[in-house]
Amino acid sequence: MNSEQRRKLSNISTASLPPVSVQKKKLRSIGSLVCCEEYHTCHNIIKKRKKEFKAKYCEFKKIGKGGFGSVMSGIRRSDSKPVAIKHIPKGLVRYMLVKRQGYEYKAVTEVALMAQAAGLLYDGSVANQGVIGLLDLYQLRTEILIVMELPLKSMDMHNFNILREGRIPEHEVKSIFKQLVDAAVLMHENGIFHRDIKAENVLVYLDQGNLSVKIIDFGCGDIIKNEPYTRFSGTFDFAPPEKLLQRQYYAEPTTVWQIGALLRDLYAEEAFETRKYMEGPNPPFDCLSHECNDFMNQCLTISPKQRPQLVELQRHPWLV
């Protein structure tokens, strides 16, 4: 399964930035984050020249591509630290307002969501080590560059699965998913909905001999709200059944569904598709323990009201 077919932070400091004058319309606000996809008339707050970027970083090769841009590997020239640089064409950039200290600031949506998912934007948020870290942001004339950490010898779960020839030992999968669920719990506590949990958006790497996980790519993300979502932005094959059946869905049941879909996708012979899964049959995997199959099946419960909550997944016997 090609990743092309499947259809990212230090703190954002706004204390020294001037307030943004905008015409308010169609805002959806939860807490201090406001989605504003129609704010393209706002002036840019952060401006840096391309030569500043080239003086600080060196790019190498493309390591990823999605609907909102491409990702290059590189290093920071000062210390040769590996980095990932996401290039987003200006026309595809979404913006949101960040309300802080009585002011409203225009921010790149993906960056703001990433920061808050990591617990780095607002006081009272929960630190989340399972979210990729931001190093720099460059707003250029034709594109936005998001510079992120890139753990040594890291790869996404899709490539990790290929490396293991589709036979990742269950104890390693258990370690990965325990961290993934923990990161998802904190992400939701911080009010952020990733909406595109899949193999290509989960980095796996060795940290002191142990597998560690980082969630990447918040380009399809949103703030969590109490009312249902109707438009789906993400990998449609991983969309929850309720989106297909009722044309609306909620954040947490969707995240739970996608965690289960990712797990099943690792072991199934064919790429996971929600429609096909709904048609069944979906027999358990003989190569996996009863607890693992049960975890997967609970995540993939068709009715969203009967799916476990993320905190309940943390307590599932497979992960305990």
Rank of each mutant, 00 (worst) to 15 (best):
M1H: 09
M1W: 10
N2M: 08
S13G: 10
L17A: 10
P19C: 12
V20P: 00
S21K: 12
C36W: 10
E37H: 15
E37R: 12
E38Y: 15
Y39R: 11
H43T: 10
K47H: 15
R49M: 12
F53V: 04
F53E: 01
A55N: 10
Y57V: 06
G64Q: 02
G69R: 03
I75M: 07
R76W: 02
S80A: 11
P82W: 05
I85V: 12
R94V: 09
M96G: 07
L97K: 03
V98R: 06
R100W: 11
R100Y: 09
Q101N: 14
Q101I: 13
V111Q: 08
A112W: 01
M114P: 00
Q116T: 03
A117I: 08
G119N: 06
Y122H: 13
A127G: 12
Q129K: 15
D136A: 07
Y138W: 09
Q139S: 14
L140C: 05
L140N: 02
E143Y: 06
E143G: 05
E143C: 14
K153W: 09
M155G: 10
M157T: 05
H158Q: 11
N159E: 11
F160Q: 03
N161P: 01
I162E: 09
S175E: 12
Q179C: 13
L180C: 08
L180Y: 02
A183W: 03
N190K: 10
G191H: 00
D196C: 06
I197A: 08
I197V: 14
E200K: 10
N201K: 08
G209H: 03
N210K: 15
N210A: 15
L211D: 01
I216F: 04
F218T: 02
F218N: 02
I224T: 00
N226V: 11
E227M: 13
F236D: 09
P240F: 08
P241M: 12
K243P: 00
L245S: 05
Q246M: 11
Q246P: 01
Q248H: 07
P253H: 06
T254R: 04
I259V: 09
G260F: 05
A261T: 00
A268D: 06
A268H: 08
E273N: 13
Y277T: 05
P281N: 03
F285C: 04
E291G: 04
F295A: 11
M296F: 07
M296K: 04
Q298G: 03
T301I: 07
P304D: 02
H316S: 01
V320C: 12
